[in-house]
Design a binder for these strands. Structure first.
Lengths: 166, 166
DNA sequence: GCTTGAATATTCAAGTTTGAAATTTTTCTA
DNA sequence: TAGAAAAATTTCAAACTTGAATATTCAAGC
């Protein structure tokens, strides 16, 4: 996904802006978006491992749980993180083994399990989150807060347009 | 990475804008960036599989090779795609097994191998790339071409600031 | 000619990820 | 209420991914 070939479709001879170049502009944006994501993810992965012995997927799951002190269902976690169900199962398994999160039953439904951060997990995540925020600020420092807000707003526009199976 | 907890650090009582809220704005941008990437990747993965029986990593490698008809070294591919060396080895192995790319020797250096698209791979990628471009255009349609160009430019700014081991 | 060091790629273990199939439990309906 | 359908999760195989360790080859220096 990093590099779809840009010069695949030629521009119109008359040189007017039209659907075609628009498509190229969006494709370019997508490539930049993806490269930016990979860069930031790579940095965060490296530092999480070096400074906290943690991995990115674990951080993600803990971040989700941190926002919901009452706990989350497995399916809520996977929907929020936009990853598959089976994926979350494995990550939570390992987090449970490390004593960072806990599975528990609620509301009498034996299909579901509520996942919560343990006290230990809460403390561990708080430390990572503070560092994480400063890493992002450092890496995105070249983008002004105003630009960041503008881009955030624009990126929201296609959030729910496609939810799988379009 | 999808959700670092935003309300971790409080704003100043005086209400002035300062470093702190800037950090939050950038963190918000990063979260949006990542969610957008996951959404688009998920869509592309699903359609590549359904319509072409291909995977995203294979598409990425083929896209890189498509841009360089003379071939690329393994290390060039991994640097361009920002993934690890060992990763590319496995993907290329499978692409070779499917007859889509070929390994060959060049310039007398027996350490290196030049990877090129086969004729079959070239044709297969061309078809996928055209579809891919229209998917992106469809999904990013809510963003104007002008906005897309502006965002692309701003996203370039922190490309080379961090290249691993900062 | 050696031998050290750099460059390039592969191998490997551990973890992540998907998507489909299977399991368990609940809910609906005839 | 029995049975079908739905919901939530787990299981599983295949593929991907990293990062460290290893192997191979090349380039210099001695």
């Amino acid at each position: 996904m990093v590099s779809a070939p840009l010069p695949a479709v030629a521009a119109r001879p008359d040189g007017k802006k039209e659907k075609e170049s628009d498509s190229k502009a969006r494709l370019r944006l997508w490539i930049r978006l993806l490269r930016a994501s990979r860069l930031i993810e790579g940095m965060a992965r490296e530092r999480l491992k070096a400074q906290f012995g943690a991995t990115l997927p674990r951080f993600d799951v803990m971040a989700a749980l941190f926002r919901q002190p009452d706990g989350m269902l497995m399916s809520e976690i996977s929907r929020f993180l936009m990853v598959s169900n089976g994926n979350v199962t494995g990550i939570v398994d390992r987090l449970v083994a490390d004593g960072l999160v806990a599975r528990s039953q609620r509301n009498g439904d034996r299909r579901t399990s509520f996942i919560t951060l343990t006290r230990k997990g809460h403390a561990a995540f708080a430390a990572m989150a503070a560092a994480h925020e400063s890493w992002i600020d450092e890496l995105l420092g070249g983008i002004s807060a105003r630009d960041a807000e503008q881009m955030s707003t624009k990126l929201k526009s296609f959030r729910s347009d496609w939810e799988g199976e379009a």
